[in-house]
Design a protein around this nucleic acid. Structure first.
Length: 956
DNA sequence: ATTATTACGCTTTTT
DNA sequence: GCGTAATAAT
C-alpha cells in the first residue's frame, strides 16, 4: 500500500479508538495500513501500554508484518513491541495456557495438568496417527458401541467431528457436556424448522415445486433404508405436489439419538484425556482449554483482559475465536475488521456469519457467556459503529466493477443467486493512475498450453500496460503475471508443461511431500526390509537403472544384487524407523529439504508412539493417497510467472491475474457434509448411516432422516463465488479467465466473451549470458594439468594432493577399459550404430535407453564458463547431461574401481551443478555417478557455492 | 413449463 | 456416493 495519508473512512477508524467497531474492509482498501495506524494511535496515549492492546491476526506471518509496520508508525521500537500481544489466536492461547493453564483440564473434570512440556501437534497427519492409536484403544474399551464402530468405517471422521465441535465451543466434561453443550448437541427444532420452511417454499408463484422437494427427487436412489423409512412417494407426495408436508420436519428432526450422543461424548472426552496424557494438544484443544480456563476464572480474566481488542481478517474467525475475543475484552473497545466477501476458509472452521451477522451474534454470544453469578462480558453490546472502507488502492475501476459480478454469477445451470440474500456489498472506488484494463476469457481443450500461450502473448505486449514505479504504463514481464487456480494439481501440471516449453514459471505453495522421490524410495526400502516385497524391489532396482526385463528376472529368482541385499540386511538390524529412514537417505545422498522434512515427520510420529515399520509404511501410503502437503522451501527464480492456489494468494496482488482451471466440478469441497457423522447448529449431531437390526438386516443402511434434513441446510455456492471474487480482486490491471474442455458455468455466465485459446507457444531458449552469472572464478582443480576423468580411467593413477593412489581393478578389460566404455556411451547417445561389447556397456546402454528428454554427451556436455567476459576452462568433462521438463541430471560414468576419488568427482560435479542451476532456473538439478560394474547410480550431494569457491581458491 | 429419470465424472482447499 | 447435465416424460 503506497498511500501516505489516510482517507476519511480510514481516519475515522484510526481516531475512533473507543467503542465497538465493525469494519467492512474490502479488498485492497489499506486495511493493514489503517490497523497499524490505529494501533499506534492507541498505544501512543499516555495511559496505554502495548500490553493493554490485543491485536489478533490469522497467520504468524501476518502478525510479524503487523508488528514491523507498527514499529514504523509509533513511538515504540521493535524491542518494546517484541512481547506485545500481536499474534494469532492459537499463539495467544498457547501462551495463556503455558502461563495460566495448569489446572485447565480439571474444569472439565479431567484429572490432568498442562505443563511446560505439553506440545502442540501442528502436523495434521501426525495427529491422525495419534488418533488412530487412540481409536484402537477406545474400541477395545467400549464394546457397547459396536454398531457405531461398524458404521464409522473411517475412524478419522471421529477426529473431524471432535474438531468441528471444538471450533463451535461445544465441549465435553468427564460426566457430560460443558455449560450448554448438551443443548448444542441436540440442536433446536425451531431453528431447523425455519430452515426447512425456507427451502420448502414453492417457487414461481406456486407453479413450481420447492427446492427441497426437487432436491429429494433422487430420494432412496442407490441406497437402502431401514423398513421404517417412508417410500419416496409417501415423503414427497405424487407428481404435481409442490412441497413436502409440514409434519415431515418434525418426523425428520425427532429421532432417538441417545446412543450417538453418548458415543460422541465418550469419544470426545476420552480423546482429550488421551492427548493430555500424551502431553500434546491440537489446535482445537488449545483454544478449547484456553476458553474453559478464561470462562472459569474471573481472576484470570481480570489479570489478562485487554483494554483494547482488535481482530484482523475477522471473516476467517471461527465461532470459538469470536467468543475468545469477547472473554478477553475487558471493555467495549473491541474492533473487528474483515470482508465477508473474502471468507473462503470454511473448511478451517471460519464462520462467515461471524461477520455477516456480527451485531446479532455479538449480543447472543455475550448473553450466552454471561451467568447470573459471573458477568463475563461486562459491556453493552448494542452500540456498534460500522465503518466501510471503500477506497481501493490496488485495482482499476474496471476490475473493481467487474468483481461484483463474481458474487452474483450462478455456479451451475440450475443455480440462481438471490441478490436480496447476498449481504451488503459496498462498492469500491479505484485509485489507479490509469485504466487500460483488459478483461478476457478463453477456453481450449489444451488448457495448459493455452494459458502458457496467453502468458507469452502478454509478456512485452504494450496492449497490456501495467504500472511502473512512477505510475506510468509499461509493458509487462513474466513477474507481473500470476496464474491462480482452485487446485494444487492444476498448478503442478501447469508447471510441468511450462517446463517442456521453458516458460519461466514458479509454483508458490506447499508440495505433496509423500509423492516426492525420497518418500517413494523410503517406502520401497521399508517394503523390502519388511517382506522383500516385489513392489519395493522394483522401485529400488529401477532407480538403480535396471531394465524392466532385468527387474522381472531378479524378482522372479529373488536373486537381488549383493550390495543391495547387504544394505537391506543392515537396515533390518536397526531398531528404530527413524534411523532406518536416515540410513536410506544417506545411501542416496538425499540431504535436501524434502528428506529433512520427511525425517522430521517420521521422528515426530515415532517419538511418542510405538511406531513399527508397518505403521510407517501405512503412514507414507496414506500420505501418497491423500496427497498430504507440507511446506518445503523451493527457491524462487528470477523473472517468472507465479502459480498458486487462490487460497494461498489471499492478501496478495498482481498486475495481471490469469484465473485458470475454470472447469466443471464443485468447489470448495464439502467433506464434512458427506461424512458419516456430522454436527450442525440447528440439527445437532447426526449420523448418516445406521446399522440394521442384528440378524435381520445385516447391512449398513442409510438414514433416511439424514437424507432429508441435509437438504434443508444451507448448501449453496456462496463460498465458491467468494473464491472467484478473491481471485478477481487480486488483479491490479488485467484479468484473464481460462477454462479447458468443459468450462464451468462461471466462465460461461460472467459478462465476458469466451474466446478460443491459442496453443502456439514459442520455446524459450536459455541465453548465453546466463552462463556468466557465477560470481566466482574457476581455476584448475588439483591433480595433474591434463587430468580428466578419462585420464584417471586410462592410467588408473590419480596424482592429486601430492600422493599417488593405485586404483584397484578387477582386471576386466585392461588399462584403457574405462575409455572404451566412455567411447561407447558417447557414440550411443550421439546416435551411432553401436552394440555393447561387455556388461558395463550394456548397463550404460540401458541407463541411457531409460532416459527420456534431451541428452548431451561428452563434448556436448561441456559448458564453457564465462567470468567477466573471459572464457574459463574446467578440466574434465561430464559424461552425460540429461534434460527433462523439470530436471537436469548430471551423470558421470564410473566403473567400480574409481570410488576412491569420489571427493574429486564431487568437486567437479558441483561446478557443473551450479552452472546448470543458473542456466535452468526452476529445474531440479541433480548430480550422480553411475557405476557400470553394478549398474548402481549414486547421488552425489553438490558442494555449496562457498565451498567450491574456497576449494578453488585454495588450489590457485 | 415442469418434473422424473438416467448417465457420467470425480474424489479438491490449508492456519 | 454424490451432484450435475442430459434426456425423457408428463
Amino acid at each position: 500500500m503506497s498511500e501516505l495519508s489516510p482517507n476519511d473512512a480510514q481516519q475515522r477508524l484510526i481516531d475512533g479508538t473507543e467503542g465497538i467497531y465493525h469494519v467492512d474492509a474490502g479488498a485492497g482498501t489499506g486495511k493493514t495500513f489503517t490497523i497499524t495506524r490505529r494501533y499506534a494511535n492507541i498505544v501512543d496515549q499516555p495511559a496505554v501500554e502495548p500490553e493493554d492492546v490485543l491485536l489478533v491476526t490469522f497467520t504468524n506471518s501476518a502478525a510479524t508484518e503487523m508488528r514491523e509496520r507498527i514499529v514504523e508508525n509509533c513511538s515504540y521500537g521493535m524491542r518494546e513491541l517484541a512481547d506485545a500481544p500481536i499474534q494469532t489466536f492459537h499463539a495467544y492461547c498457547y501462551d495463556l495456557l503455558a502461563e495460566h493453564g495448569y489446572r485447565a483440564p480439571t474444569h472439565l473434570g479431567i484429572d490432568d495438568r498442562i505443563t511446560g512440556s505439553t506440545r502442540i501437534v501442528e502436523d495434521e497427519f501426525v495427529e491422525r496417527e495419534y488418533f488412530r492409536e487412540f481409536y484402537g484403544q477406545f474400541r477395545d474399551r467400549h464394546p457397547e458401541y459396536t454398531d457405531l464402530f461398524r458404521v464409522l468405517s473411517n475412524p478419522l471422521e471421529g477426529l473431524e467431528l471432535v474438531n468441528e465441535l471444538a471450533s463451535k465451543g461445544v465441549f465435553p466434561t468427564a460426566e457430560g457436556w460443558y455449560r450448554d453443550g448438551a443443548d448444542a448437541l441436540h440442536g433446536s427444532f425451531g431453528a431447523f424448522k425455519s430452515q426447512f420452511d425456507a427451502v420448502n417454499e414453492p417457487r414461481n408463484g406456486g407453479s413450481k415445486q420447492s427446492k427441497l422437494r426437487e432436491a429429494l427427487s433422487g430420494f432412496g436412489r442407490s441406497k437402502t433404508y431401514r423398513p421404517d423409512a417412508p417410500s419416496k412417494t409417501e415423503l414427497r407426495g405424487g407428481r404435481g405436489t409442490k412441497q413436502l408436508d409440514d409434519s415431515v420436519a418434525r418426523d425428520v428432526f425427532e429421532s432417538d439419538r441417545s446412543e450417538l450422543e453418548a458415543f460422541v461424548h465418550d469419544l470426545y472426552v476420552e480423546y482429550l484425556e488421551f492427548a493430555l496424557a500424551r502431553n500434546y494438544l491440537n489446535f482445537g484443544f488449545l483454544q478449547l482449554l484456553a476458553f474453559v480456563q478464561l470462562c472459569e476464572s474471573p481472576q484470570l480474566r481480570e489479570r489478562v483482559g485487554f483494554e483494547y481488542v482488535m481482530v484482523d481478517e475477522f471473516q476467517d474467525a471461527s465461532e470459538i475465536q469470536f467468543k475468545l475475543a469477547l472473554l478477553l475484552a475487558e471493555t467495549d473497545n473491541l474492533s473487528v475488521v474483515g470482508d465477508w466477501k473474502q471468507s473462503i476458509y470454511s473448511f478451517q472452521y471460519a464462520d462467515v456469519e461471524n461477520i455477516t451477522e456480527f451485531e446479532t451474534r455479538l449480543e447472543r454470544f455475550a448473553a450466552e457467556l454471561n451467568d447470573p453469578d459471573d458477568t463475563r462480558v461486562g459491556f453493552q453490546t448494542d452500540n456498534v459503529e460500522r465503518i466501510s472502507l471503500t477506497e481501493n488502492y490496488r485495482s482499476t475501476q474496471s476490475i473493481l466493477d467487474f468483481s461484483e459480478h463474481a458474487l452474483e454469477t450462478p455456479a451451475t445451470s440450475s443455480d440462481s443467486v438471490d441478490v436480496e440474500d447476498l449481504g451488503e456489498v459496498d462498492s469500491l472506488q479505484s485509485n489507479a493512475p490509469f485504466d487500460e484494463t483488459t478483461i478476457e476469457a478463453l477456453a481450449h481443450e489444451d488448457e495448459y498450453e493455452a494459458v502458457l500461450a496467453k502468458v507469452q502473448d502478454i509478456v512485452g505486449n504494450a496492449d497490456y500496460p501495467v504500472e511502473d514505479e512512477d505510475g506510468e504504463p509499461r509493458a509487462p514481464t513474466f513477474e507481473d503475471i500470476a496464474v491462480l487456480t482452485r487446485t494444487r494439481d492444476f498448478g503442478r501440471e501447469l508447471l510441468d508443461v511450462a517446463g517442456e516449453y521453458d516458460v519461466p514459471v514458479a509454483y508458490d505453495g506447499d508440495v505433496e511431500l509423500f509423492r516426492s522421490d525420497p518418500a517413494k524410495l523410503l517406502l520401497a526400502w521399508l517394503r523390502i526390509v519388511d517382506s522383500d516385497a516385489d513392489r519395493g524391489w522394483a522401485v529400488v532396482l529401477e532407480r538403480a537403472s535396471y531394465t524392466i526385463d532385468e527387474i522381472d528376472a531378479i524378482l522372479e529368482d529373488e536373486r537381488y544384487p549383493e550390495n543391495m541385499a547387504a544394505f537391506r540386511d543392515s537396515l533390518r538390524e536397526l531398531a528404530s524407523v527413524g534411523s532406518l529412514t536416515r540410513r536410506v537417505f544417506e545411501r542416496y545422498g538425499m540431504t535436501g529439504e524434502y528428506a529433512d522434512v520427511i525425517l522430521h515427520l517420521v521422528q515426530s510420529v515415532h517419538d511418542s508412539t510405538t511406531f513399527t515399520r508397518g505403521d510407517l509404511i501405512r503412514f507414507i501410503q496414506d500420505g501418497i493417497e491423500n496427497g498430504s502437503t507440507h511446506g518445503v522451501h523451493t527457491s524462487a527464480s528470477e523473472d517468472s510467472v507465479t502459480v498458486q492456489t487462490i487460497h494461498s494468494a489471499k492478501g496478495l496482488e498482481y498486475p495481471i491475474v490469469i484465473l485458470a482451471n475454470m472447469n466443471e466440478g464443485r468447489f470448495p469441497p464439502r467433506t464434512r457434509s458427506s461424512g458419516v457423522l456430522r454436527y450442525e447448529e440447528s440439527v445437532g449431531v447426526r449420523q448418516r448411516k445406521v446399522y440394521g437390526e442384528e440378524g435381520l438386516y445385516p447391512h449398513i443402511y442409510d438414514n433416511w432422516r439424514y437424507d432429508v434434513y441435509r437438504r434443508c441446510l444451507p448448501d449453496g455456492y456462496d463460498e465458491e463465488r467468494r473464491l472467484l471474487y478473491v481471485a478477481i480482486t487480486r488483479a491490479e490491471h488485467h484479468l484473464v479467465f481460462a477454462g479447458g474442455e468443459k468450462p464451468n458455468t462461471f466462465l460461461q455466465e460472467l459478462p465476458v466473451e469466451v474466446q478460443d485459446g491459442s496453443t502456439e507457444i514459442e520455446r524459450v531458449v536459455a541465453t548465453e549470458t546466463e552462463q556468466s552469472q557465477l560470481p566466482f572464478t574457476i581455476a584448475s582443480p588439483d591433480g595433474p594439468a591434463s587430468y580428466s576423468p578419462h585420464s584417471l580411467m586410462d592410467d588408473g593413477v590419480f596424482e592429486g594432493g601430492g600422493e599417488s593412489v593405485e586404483i584397484e581393478r578387477d582386471g576386466e578389460g585392461g588399462m584403457d577399459f574405462g575409455t572404451q566404455v566412455h567411447d561407447f556411451a558417447e557414440a550411443y547417445v550421439l546416435g551411432a550404430d553401436v552394440t555393447p561389447s561387455n556388461e558395463h556397456e550394456e548397463r550404460i546402454q540401458e541407463l541411457i535407453a531409460g532416459l527420456t528428454g534431451e541428452l548431451f554427451a561428452e563434448e556436448d556436455a561441456v559448458l564453457p564458463l564465462e567470468v567477466d567476459g573471459e572464457r574459463v576452462a574446467i578440466t574434465g568433462v561430464v559424461d552425460l547431461v540429461h534434460l527433462t521438463a523439470d530436471r537436469v541430471e548430471i551423470i558421470d560414468y564410473k566403473t567400480d574401481g574409481s570410488r576412491r576419488a569420489q571427493a574429486e568427482y564431487r568437486k567437479q560435479l558441483s561446478v557443473y551443478y551450479h552452472v546448470l542451476a543458473s542456466v535452468y532456473p526452476g529445474r531440479e538439478v541433480t548430480t550422480s555417478l553411475f557405476y557400470s560394474a553394478d549398474g548402481e547410480r549414486v547421488a552425489v550431494e553438490p558442494l555449496s557455492r562457498d565451498e567450491v569457491r574456497a576449494l578453488v581458491q585454495a588450489v590457485s
